[in-house]
Amino acid sequence: MEGEINSTQVERMKISTYGSFLAESLADWSKQVVSLVEQKKFYGSVIQRELALISNLFTVDNFPNITRRDGKLLNFTKLLAWFEPMLTNEYCTVFNITCNMTGCGINDKCKLEEWCVNVGEEILDGKDLDLSPVQKEFICTLRNASIVLKNGNLYTGSMSKVELPHGWGAEFAGTDNASVIYEGNWVHGKKDGLGSLYTPKSKTPYYSGSMLNDAMWGQGVLYYASGNKMFTGLMANGFIQKGKLFKDTPQSQAISSVDETNIPVVRLNFQDTEISPFLPPAATSETRD
């Protein structure tokens, strides 16, 4: 249910509570909340997906046009310069707790689909992580993994926190990595962005270009089984929309232009060829004619 605490991601949530739980650190506080949620003893309301110190709320956006007693606007930079040392040096000392001012779940700017990793906690390999540095203390990253997709095919590449393909990755025919059928960008489990499509066990793609919602969509290039260029131009929902067709030769000799005005003629001229499956199907009115 939207707004409920997800105990597997509580370190990325800001939670409203009726009172407070004493803890040695923010991590321990988070563990207490997870435990209470799982025991159904605590029902918090998720406000925002991060766990942060209260001083993070002291911004002009949250408190616009706040004036002091003398009528001057409140200077939040000076306020934080006074408040945060007091919070960390006095409050945290009195209660004997650790108040970290930076780190994952505190002041990271990671997107919901990214993982926050504290530097030093894990061994990071640049080959396996799509890194985007945030601060020296932590980084935001998409983690690489291998999973079996709903269609039964193997996926290897970047993953979101909800374990969907997100970022750069490859899909293989079947459950092993012997035959790639797509390599490129993914967004929340869908082929989206630049990528290349392959027929099973082929070493060369039959399409390279833009993808959208798992379909060839946008600027791209189609190829014959020989590897020679078949078409360059715009694709829409998996079919040729506008561009140029080429003869199956290494010289890329243009043989026809394609647009919405001549699709029926092109379909007739190239029926039963490698080009035919990529041409949009005939409309109902066109079939009657």
Score class of each variant (00 low, 15 high):
residue 83 F to Q: 01
residue 106 I to Q: 04
residue 152 G to P: 02
residue 120 G to A: 14
residue 140 C to N: 14
residue 80 L to P: 01
residue 65 N to H: 15
residue 104 C to H: 04
residue 81 A to L: 05
residue 79 L to D: 02
residue 60 V to L: 05
residue 59 T to I: 08
residue 89 N to T: 00
residue 104 C to T: 06
residue 144 N to L: 08
residue 147 I to W: 04
residue 90 E to D: 15
residue 149 L to Y: 07
residue 77 T to K: 00
residue 131 L to C: 08
residue 92 C to M: 04
residue 121 E to K: 15
residue 76 F to R: 03
residue 115 W to C: 10
residue 119 V to T: 14
residue 103 G to C: 10
residue 60 V to F: 00
residue 85 P to C: 01
residue 79 L to V: 13
residue 75 N to K: 01
residue 113 E to Q: 15
residue 139 I to M: 04
residue 56 N to T: 14
residue 69 R to T: 11
residue 129 L to Y: 09
residue 74 L to I: 11
residue 111 K to P: 03
residue 95 F to E: 02
residue 104 C to I: 07
residue 57 L to N: 10
residue 138 F to L: 10
residue 104 C to V: 11
residue 59 T to P: 04
residue 98 T to I: 13
residue 99 C to F: 13
residue 100 N to M: 06
residue 142 L to T: 15
residue 77 T to Q: 02
residue 101 M to F: 01
residue 116 C to I: 12
residue 141 T to H: 09
residue 119 V to W: 05
residue 112 L to W: 13
residue 139 I to K: 07
residue 85 P to S: 00
residue 138 F to E: 07
residue 113 E to G: 05
residue 125 D to I: 11
residue 72 K to V: 06
residue 100 N to L: 08
residue 146 S to A: 14
residue 92 C to T: 01
residue 76 F to G: 04
residue 146 S to Y: 03
residue 116 C to V: 11
residue 130 D to E: 08
residue 85 P to A: 00
residue 98 T to R: 02
residue 132 S to F: 12
residue 114 E to A: 11
residue 126 G to L: 14
residue 101 M to N: 06
residue 119 V to F: 03
residue 83 F to T: 01
residue 97 I to H: 00
residue 134 V to P: 06
residue 125 D to A: 07
residue 135 Q to P: 02
residue 144 N to D: 14
residue 127 K to R: 13
residue 64 P to Q: 06
residue 146 S to V: 10
residue 124 L to P: 01
residue 156 T to V: 14
residue 60 V to Q: 10
residue 59 T to F: 08
residue 147 I to S: 07
residue 155 Y to D: 06
residue 67 T to D: 02
residue 153 N to M: 02
residue 68 R to C: 13
residue 143 R to P: 13
residue 93 T to S: 15
residue 104 C to S: 05
residue 146 S to I: 05
residue 99 C to A: 11
residue 68 R to T: 14
residue 89 N to C: 00
residue 157 G to W: 03
residue 67 T to W: 00
residue 130 D to W: 02
residue 118 N to Q: 13
residue 96 N to G: 05
residue 74 L to K: 01
residue 69 R to G: 06
residue 61 D to I: 01
residue 108 D to T: 07
residue 156 T to Y: 03
residue 145 A to T: 12
residue 116 C to Q: 13
residue 101 M to E: 14
residue 62 N to R: 12
residue 90 E to N: 10
residue 69 R to N: 15
residue 133 P to L: 13
residue 120 G to S: 09
residue 108 D to S: 09
residue 97 I to G: 01
residue 88 T to F: 06
residue 94 V to Q: 11
residue 56 N to H: 15
residue 95 F to H: 01
residue 154 L to P: 08
residue 61 D to Q: 11
residue 130 D to A: 15
residue 107 N to M: 09
residue 101 M to P: 06
residue 71 G to C: 07
residue 147 I to Q: 12
residue 67 T to V: 03
residue 121 E to F: 02
residue 148 V to A: 02
residue 96 N to V: 08
residue 134 V to G: 08
residue 145 A to Y: 10
residue 157 G to P: 04
residue 118 N to Y: 12
residue 157 G to R: 04
residue 89 N to Q: 00
residue 105 G to Y: 09
residue 90 E to C: 12
residue 66 I to V: 06
residue 104 C to A: 08
residue 88 T to S: 05
residue 118 N to M: 10
residue 85 P to I: 05
residue 109 K to R: 15
residue 131 L to R: 14
residue 100 N to G: 03
residue 74 L to T: 05
residue 137 E to N: 08
residue 122 E to I: 08
